[in-house]
Simulated assay, not measured.
Amino acid sequence: MKVRRPSMFAQISRGLRLIYSERSFLAQQGYTESIKQKRPCKPDGTPLPWMNYQVVHFLEQRLRKDHNLFEYGSGYSTQFYARHAGTVTSVEHNRDWYNILNKNKPENVELLFRDIGDINGYCQAIAGGDRRFDIIVVDGRERLQCMEVAVDFLSEQGVVLLDDSSRKRYQDGRSAMKRRGFRELDFIGIKPGGLSTHQTTLFYKENNCLGL
């Protein structure tokens, strides 16, 4: 018995329904709205991190208002973390982008500017005081160096999040975290408005703040 395959038109039609139908997963997550607004957001325009939907959903469920978070690489994600965490400290290397973000930053956000070329600047921005952080997000420049510095400023229950962790140039950093005794949890999926899959990895130990 010959099996009839869907026509090219039928396949395209299904693909369009997946993206644009109000009942589809992508539309409900804000994928369509992200394309329209050219930024990661929910259907109502609320900002999201430019990370895959799986890890965004996980963070929405696990972040708490007693968490102190540090972020390498500021943006729409900074507003997302501010809604879910207690305090957010975020460092940005681009002066123009920093100025835009600084105009409307939430009250619980401390936004820092550090020049990427300053050896004591961007990566070392987390070392500006004696604070320890429950979550450290590495999603900006010089990610390997930032990860190396970050672990010394984790709280006892702290975790590190590395976005785009499947990239070849970040594998040495992943290996270094394993040698330090961290376990890994990978999240893989598409990002708002994107087409290909991306990976984000959480590094954690026992009794961590996210309940892993």
Rank of each mutant, 00 (worst) to 15 (best):
K2Q: 15
R4C: 12
R5K: 13
R5V: 12
F9S: 14
A10T: 10
Q11K: 14
Q11W: 06
S13E: 14
R17P: 01
R23C: 09
F25A: 15
L26H: 01
A27Y: 13
G30T: 03
G30R: 00
T32V: 14
E33D: 12
E33M: 08
S34D: 12
Q37D: 11
K38T: 04
R39A: 11
K42D: 14
P43L: 05
P43I: 10
G45P: 09
G45D: 10
G45H: 06
L48W: 00
W50R: 03
W50H: 08
W50T: 01
M51D: 08
H57Y: 03
K65I: 03
K65Y: 03
D66P: 02
D66I: 03
H67K: 03
F70G: 08
S74W: 00
Q79T: 09
A82D: 00
R83D: 05
G86H: 05
T87W: 08
T87R: 10
T87Y: 08
T89C: 10
S90H: 04
D96R: 10
W97D: 02
Y98I: 09
Y98F: 15
N99F: 06
I100W: 06
L101N: 04
L111K: 06
Y122H: 04
C123W: 01
C123V: 08
A127P: 07
G128Q: 13
G128E: 14
G129P: 01
I135F: 03
V137N: 04
V137Y: 02
R141I: 07
R141C: 06
E142V: 09
E142P: 01
L144N: 15
Q145G: 14
L154H: 10
E156C: 11
E156Y: 07
Q157D: 15
V159K: 00
V160D: 12
D163W: 01
S166W: 05
K168F: 10
K168D: 14
Y170E: 04
Q171H: 10
R174E: 14
R180G: 07
R180N: 06
R183D: 06
F187W: 05
P192K: 02
G194L: 02
L195W: 09
S196Y: 10
Q199F: 00
L202K: 01
L202S: 05
F203Y: 14
F203R: 01
K205N: 10
E206Y: 09
C209W: 01
L210T: 06
L210A: 12
G211M: 09
